[in-house]
Design a protein around this nucleic acid. Structure first.
Length: 227
DNA sequence: CGAATGATACCCT
DNA sequence: GGGTATCATTCGG
């Protein structure tokens, strides 16, 4: 039996790697600050979905900050409504909404002076349960790095829909957040304008409130080159 | 580049 | 109450 000299993973480190250590829940303090700092702190944290069929785990590599009602790009701009009431609640809870009538997006509510604020999970790097993610994504490419490279793709890959709206991501058993593996160190963080919020006007859409891990191949799209 | 697709916020009877 | 413009996206041509 011979091994090919080269295979499809040539030139790429083997990814995803299995999780070797037990997962530890993320501390409430991680999401207890304002949206901008929380968005940066959540980079590297792990998103975990567990059910009877197994476990899906991925590393958060891209986020966006949405501040309180003053933020014209935030759903909180309309004040407290039936849809956004979760945003006005305690930090660590999931705010899941349907966008464009087709796609779900997952946010982590954070705390900002009791105002509504949240962090949109824009991209996740799959680490475990990749086959399950592929199945959940239907006809998508086979590259693990693209399976959750987008806010709606993340929800598809992890089976997240509005039934998860309002759950506590720091105590729930089905969908929860875990701390980065011990020894994991964040790469440089890059930032850029938030995606798809031009309607908010330049004062808000130009703010560099989108954050990503600079070396990640699982970003939803490139960050504009710095200048 | 445009379609898909439905909840929602907002304005008007 | 009812009509409707809008949308924190994705995929295929």
């Amino acid at each position: 039996m011979t091994l090919p000299a080269h295979d499809a993973s040539e030139g790429r480190p083997d990814r995803p790697r299995p999780i070797s250590q037990p997962l530890v829940r993320l501390a409430r303090g991680t999401v207890s600050g304002d949206a901008v700092s929380t968005a940066q702190r959540l980079l590297g944290a792990l998103l975990v979905h567990e059910d009877g069929l197994g476990r899906r785990v991925g590393r958060i590599v891209e986020t966006e900050a949405y501040a309180g009602p003053d933020d014209r790009a935030s759903h909180a701009r309309a004040g407290r409504t039936a849809r956004t009431s979760i945003m006005f609640g305690p930090p660590g809870h999931a705010y899941v909404y349907l966008v464009y009538g087709l796609h779900h997006c997952l946010n982590v509510v954070c705390a900002e002076d009791g105002e509504a604020a949240a962090v949109l999970i824009r991209a996740v790097e799959p680490l475990e349960g990749v086959e399950r993610m592929r199945a959940a994504r239907g006809r998508a490419g086979t590259d693990p790095d693209r399976l959750a490279a987008g806010p709606a793709r993340t929800c598809q890959a992890f089976g997240i829909d509005r039934t998860f709206d309002g759950i506590d991501l720091l105590s729930d058993d089905r969908l929860w957040l875990a701390a980065p593996a011990a020894g994991w160190r964040p790469a440089a963080i890059v930032s850029g304008p938030r995606v798809g919020v031009d309607y908010a006007g330049p004062d808000w859409s130009d703010r560099p409130w989108r954050f990503g891990l600079a070396d990640s191949r699982a970003l939803s799209r490139p960050f504009p080159v710095g200048r």
